[in-house]
Design a protein around this nucleic acid. Structure first.
Lengths: 254, 254
DNA sequence: CAGGTCACGTTGTCCTGACAATTGACACGG
DNA sequence: CCGTGTCAATTGTCAGGACAACGTGACCTG
């Protein structure tokens, strides 16, 4: 009699290029992820045991495990001891972490427009200083932007960055997102602390966003840190609740 | 001349119990995490190289790496090739994922009160069926609750669960959070999909929450899945914006 | 003194091998 | 018919070693 079925992938073509500088486990992870996305691996299907998979690919088991683990961390796979590893029954799959509004909109196929209202340098002041962990009289770059889609205002973004970190040109800010500019300057974001709330629009805000006075606004404050733990950016943003909602996926932190 | 300083922890007492059923890497990870929390390992300090650490503890390098990696995933440590592993310059440290409002409040030291407004069974209907991935005429348990703190309304929670999953007793719902009851029933949450928005309060909602009509409300919809990918719960909640904000931390998903 | 070069230390990747723990399926006995 | 024990399959954990890639700092050179 045959061994237990080694999974539903069957003739899924997998293979690694040992001459590539890309790590083997990463190559495998990418191929598996692609197979899941394209439907080559259907939700609920077993992945075939690690030993056999390693043998078939000419890899060692730890390498295969590392690839699988990275997908488990992404929430694409679930491991079950004694059973096997299976593709999670995805309903929706949206990671959405540490991206800016611009990235989100661009990914959705919309081409957002930006109007820079202000691009200055000024002393931080108590609130910004506390958020960025700097002195109150330290200088920060202040950027105020209005984000529009389909010609309609969508959000009003206010950002504070430690001065000297990066030169922000107004023209660049109208062309791409703030986070893109940061990455381009060699700053890699590592983590961020966010707070999302709501409040009624003031008269000035209502005018600016073409919303009714007293209408509901979604507020978001975020402080972003790079991998040294240094605060890189503090933003205080308001969104028209009628045109925007935050969507994200949570994974258990066990 | 001496070797490069093996890190700032120096006389930090670490050790594992090989007779414990707790995995070695987990023991080490816990001790390191505790040392970071209590200040035994100060932010920015090096952790000492993995080889030496492994030798000192009588462990192999992969085991030590696994422990360190788990803390890197949590955002507590940062690895730098050629440099070493250092404690992240923590500003704030808040995981906050996949918890219920009750959990959050309880963790904050408040003792929330719950008033169960409804606890019924009914057909799902199109909206709930789509969220849970079941048939429209399938029966679901419907729970409506009012959450109060300090005697004041805070949120109105509406939850839908597939019928037969769990017996929800009104008395239990007033005593603990829904997610606690799920865990107690052996259901382990794996992931959730959330959407956070805002809107103005209707007259009925304003009365119920003791808020001004038309006042800003924070809305949250969440579908939670267990580790088989089965939808376990769909919730549609409203919070008084004046009394609640969502706070959470993001880590880069590289 | 400035700039490039090289040695060194550290983490990244990968291999082989072994045993433990957990789950599900099946045969067996009550 | 049902409970129970046994067994096989699979992932979980751990060891020990080897080489590669990368960043730093010291050294050498111009």
């Amino acid at each position: 009699m045959a061994k237990r079925d080694a999974g539903a992938q069957g003739s899924l073509r997998l293979g690694v290029d040992r001459n590539s500088p890309v790590p083997l486990y990463f190559q495998l992870a990418q191929q598996l992820e692609k197979a899941i996305e394209t439907g080559g691996l259907t939700p609920g299907s077993l992945l075939g045991n690690e030993i056999e998979l390693a043998g078939r690919l000419g890899l060692s088991r730890p390498t295969v495990r590392q690839a699988i683990q990275s997908l488990v961390d992404k929430g694409l796979l679930v491991r079950r001891r004694g059973i096997g590893t299976q593709v999670v029954h995805s309903q929706v799959r949206r990671p959405l972490a540490l991206t800016s509004l611009y990235d989100d909109l661009a990914a959705a196929g919309q081409r957002p427009a930006t109007r820079v209202l202000r691009n200055d340098i000024e002393p931080a002041g108590p609130r910004v200083a506390a958020a960025l962990g700097i002195a109150e009289d330290a200088e920060v770059a202040v950027v105020e932007r209005l984000r529009l889609t389909h010609g309609e205002p969508m959000a009003r973004l206010t950002n504070y960055l430690p001065a000297g970190l990066l030169e922000l040109k107004t023209a660049e800010l109208e062309e791409s997102g703030l986070y893109q500019l940061l990455r381009r300057a060699g700053i890699t974001l590592h983590s961020a602390r966010q707070a999302v709330g709501a409040r009624a629009a003031t008269a000035a805000e209502a005018t600016e966003l073409a919303e009714a006075p007293g209408g509901p606004l979604l507020t978001m404050e975020r402080t972003a840190f790079d991998d040294t733990g240094r605060a890189v950016e503090f933003g205080s943003h308001i969104y028209r609740a009628s045109r925007y909602t935050f969507e994200f996926q949570l994974l258990d932190r066990s």
